[in-house]
Design a protein around this nucleic acid. Structure first.
Length: 561
DNA sequence: TCTCAAGGCCAC
DNA sequence: GTGGCCTTGAGA
């Protein structure tokens, strides 16, 4: 392949983003694009046949540089005065790991956040047109301690994660800015936004947790977890990935059937995509080949039309895509470059993330959002585990969430254990519960109403605004009753039977909580997480109401056992 | 003027 | 060759 052919391929595959002319724009001859044609390192990337495109990164396009709904709209993620927490500094956000080697990130370099070392390596390689070869299988593991061993695989990984050849300057001019500036700014703003949301969730929950009980100096457990760099993940298609190239993360993921999302939510007719939800395009769900179990359990479209506006509004507060994206995103980020991870620890992190989502959801819901923080705290402390179990039932029944998934490193992750809060022996009870719900044709409106009933529990002691909570509870109760009578007239006393399921959910959740607490006390669970704060909150000496509730759980547990 | 992502330098 | 630190300079 000649240089001109290479250049042609480069141009054809360059993203619209890359093609945007600038001071160093494409086609200038002396600009980086023209330069990149001559700077493409030979050897490593050139070991391809003529019909193979050597540039795994070359199919970058704006759709995933800025996935729909995550900042593609001008300014949508740009922080404005007052909407970014003052304490949140950009540097805090950038405290993440280099996607190439896992070392500490020093800033944006050649298109994404990397460490100083990989920045220098990438620069030297491109500037000096280095030719590397791999003495192994072109799939060497690259981490901080081994990054020097195989420059071939290191450079390949640089390209795989999205470092941009065209950001290395042809004329070696120093200083100044390049065309990636706005991209960096958006990415940074997006990370700030994520941090802000987490902080709000934490602040909501900190309130009474700090007093008397656990004082952790809590910070978001994911402050140090790599926040996925949306701008950095190139999707290596079969057209662009050469068998001669070292495999990129995307390719590896495909090969190992790494965390696969479940089929799309089966309840689209309920219009569950909230204004905050990720765009349907943000995650490439595969079209399910078969219908999910719930598809036959839902009312017909005619009946759907008779659903009250309130229930429709409830349903819209559900964001299953976001739930799934978060779940599989976390599994991906936590196993990135990891040979083996502690699966229990990983489960705790997922549960923790789910808790954050739950708080976010609750904070934006009717009834709950009008309560004072103290009341919100108490309600959440009482219902979080029940809601986690219920959420998992919902994900299984309505979105086809599988019981297991394969992580990027090949380990199997037990998704069902999330619903069991880590107690495998509860699987049978969980399945029985699910079957019972399936018999009742438990659908999405049922789910969201039951979730509200769990959250808005007027029996929780210490609530100041009991009236508001009770009103909310009774309103939801009435709506659910009406819904079940209207849409499921053939199921006798569906409402009553649904209400009877709630104690069973309590029982499962209580067992899970106890298990988690014991593992935590044994030093096996991650500390300083929201999950652990919640567990401790229930065990505060002054939590008399917790004792009462535990007694309820125990009695139900006896039945389960 | 300040910021920060480029390139450069040099001890290792 | 590597990687930490320094210098540079366009853009905010």
């Amino acid at each position: 392949m000649t240089m001109d052919q290479q250049a042609g391929l480069m141009s054809l595959n360059m993203s619209p983003f890359d093609l945007s002319p600038g001071p160093e724009g494409s086609g200038s001859g002396s600009g980086p694009s023209g330069a990149s044609q001559q700077y493409v390192p030979q050897g490593a990337a050139y070991q391809c046949t003529s019909d193979q495109q050597p540039f795994g990164y070359a199919n970058l396009d704006a759709s995933y540089l800025f996935p729909t709904g995550t900042g593609s709209e001008p300014g949508s993620y740009l922080p404005t005065a007052g909407n970014v927490c003052d304490q949140t500094d950009t540097k805090d956000v950038i405290e993440e790991l280099c996607p190439v080697c896992g070392d500490k990130v020093s800033g944006y370099h050649y298109g994404l956040l990397t460490c100083e070392s990989c920045k220098g390596f990438f620069k030297r390689t491109v500037q000096n047109k280095k030719v590397y070869t791999c003495v192994a299988e072109r799939a060497c593991h690259i981490d901080k301690t081994q990054r020097k061993r195989c420059p071939f695989c290191r450079f390949q990984k640089c390209l795989d994660v999205g470092m941009k050849l065209e950001a290395v300057r042809a004329d070696r001019m120093r200083g100044g800015r390049n065309k990636f500036g706005p991209m960096y700014k958006r990415d940074r703003a997006r990370k700030l936004q994520m941090m802000r949301q987490r902080q709000i969730a934490v602040q909501t929950l900190r309130g009474s947790l700090g007093e008397g009980g656990l004082v952790l100096g809590f910070s978001s457990p994911y402050a140090t977890v790599p926040v996925k760099q949306e701008i950095q993940i190139p999707q290596v298609s079969s057209l662009t990935s050469s068998p001669e190239s070292s495999p990129g993360p995307a390719l590896l993921a495909a090969q190992t059937q790494a965390p696969q999302p479940p089929p799309p939510p089966a309840h689209d007719k309920w219009e569950t995509h909230s204004p905050h939800s990720a765009s349907p395009d943000a995650f490439a769900f595969e079209t399910p080949a078969t219908t999910t179990p719930s598809s036959t359990a839902e009312p017909t479209s005619t009946e759907t039309l008779r659903v009250s506006p309130m229930i429709r509004e409830f349903v819209q507060t559900i964001d299953d895509r976001e739930w799934q994206n978060s779940l599989f995103g976390l599994l991906q980020s936590q196993t990135y470059n990891q040979c083996e991870v502690d699966l229990f620890e990983l489960m705790c992190k997922v549960l923790d993330q789910n808790l954050f989502s739950q708080v976010d959801w609750a904070r934006n819901t009717v009834f709950f959002k009008y309560l004072k923080v103290d009341d919100q705290m108490k309600l959440l402390q009482h219902s979080w585990s029940d809601m986690l179990v219920l959420d998992h039932l919902h994900q299984r029944m309505h979105n086809g969430l599988p019981d297991e998934t394969t992580l990027h490193n090949g380990q199997k992750f037990d998704l069902l254990c999330l619903g069991l809060l880590g107690v495998p022996s509860l699987a049978e009870h969980f399945n029985e519960l699910q079957n019972k719900l399936a018999e009742l044709k438990f659908d999405v409106p049922d789910y969201i109403c039951v979730k509200f009933l769990l959250l808005l529990n007027p029996e929780v002691r210490g609530i100041v605004n009991v009236k508001c909570v009770r009103d909310g509870y009774q309103t939801v109760q009435a709506a659910l009753l009406d819904y079940t009578l209207t849409c499921y007239p053939t199921i006798q006393d569906k409402f009553g039977k649904l209400v009877m399921v709630v104690p069973e959910i309590h029982a499962l959740a209580a067992r899970g909580e106890e298990h988690l607490y014991q593992r935590h006390c044994a030093g096996q669970a991650p500390t300083q997480t929201l999950l652990m704060e919640m567990l401790h909150a229930k065990r505060k000496p002054n939590g008399a109401e917790m004792v009462n509730r535990s007694a309820d759980h125990t009695s139900t547990l006896d039945r389960l056992s």
